[in-house]
Amino acid sequence: MVESKPLTDESEGLRISDLAVDYPAGRALDSLTFEVPRGASLAVLGPNGAGKTTLLHAIAGLIGTSHGEINPGAGTVALVPQEISVEPMFPITALDVVRMGRYQALGVFGRFRKSDHDLVAKACSQLEIGEFAEMRFGNLSGGQKRRVLLAQVVAQDAGLILLDEPFAGVDVPTVEAIKSLITSWGSSGRTVIVTTHDLESSARDYDFVAAINRKLVAFGPADRTLSEEVLTTTFAGRIARVGDFIVDTAHHHHGAG
């Protein structure tokens, strides 16, 4: 496997200051301020409708902001959406989808050079998509599609990677593959932001945690931030203690209290 090339840019990681986002139905995010150092990972926790996906979309520049600033730091920004609805008959192979990751760097006409082919090959190998690389994307299983989209992000070679609920509905090997990918991104200086409902994993597998419910409830080092009080405020009481576990009753995922 080819090792990820560390980003050489010395600029800082993600900086968000006083961010607000409005939808026609009302304010979706308000007064969000936090910083994530380059190469660190952040888990964003919150109930449905808390603005987790809105936050990722704002950082990726897909939606406008009403107030505040977002500085994504070094490199390009990559976003893997929670779901992607592609017609099964769409004529594109898994490999083509991975190759799309290079389009931003190559522009409209740029030809694939050896370095581009190497990045695509590395992405395919890292996500183990070799055996279905030539299959139609639309015919793949949900987990396989998720792997292909993650491989596209690897090929994109972005500095800031945003994953919207990457663990929802995938099998155990894919979960492990995504976790090891997040670790490898961190060690090569890439900043990773993951929205999740997995409280236990948030406290264990990430450098930082942001608990949000339209506003920032808490932000800090993952192992010291998720107090019972923070979780109760974030999830507005939709948290239950069951034995040694805290359960987000809306999603039935469990986590250490």
């Binding site: 990726a60 520049g61 897909l62 390009t76 920004v77 990559a78 976003l79 959406p81 992607i84 609805s85 592609v86 769409f90 594109i92 989808v97 799309m100 990751g101 389009y103 931003q104 409209v108 006409f109 989209l149 994109q156």
Partner: peptide, 21 residues
Amino acid sequence: AILYRPLLLLSFDARRAAALG
């Protein structure tokens, strides 16, 4: 031919296309 890559990205997934610039 000129717009092939943007058109392919747009047809595949408009949001992903926007995220790729």
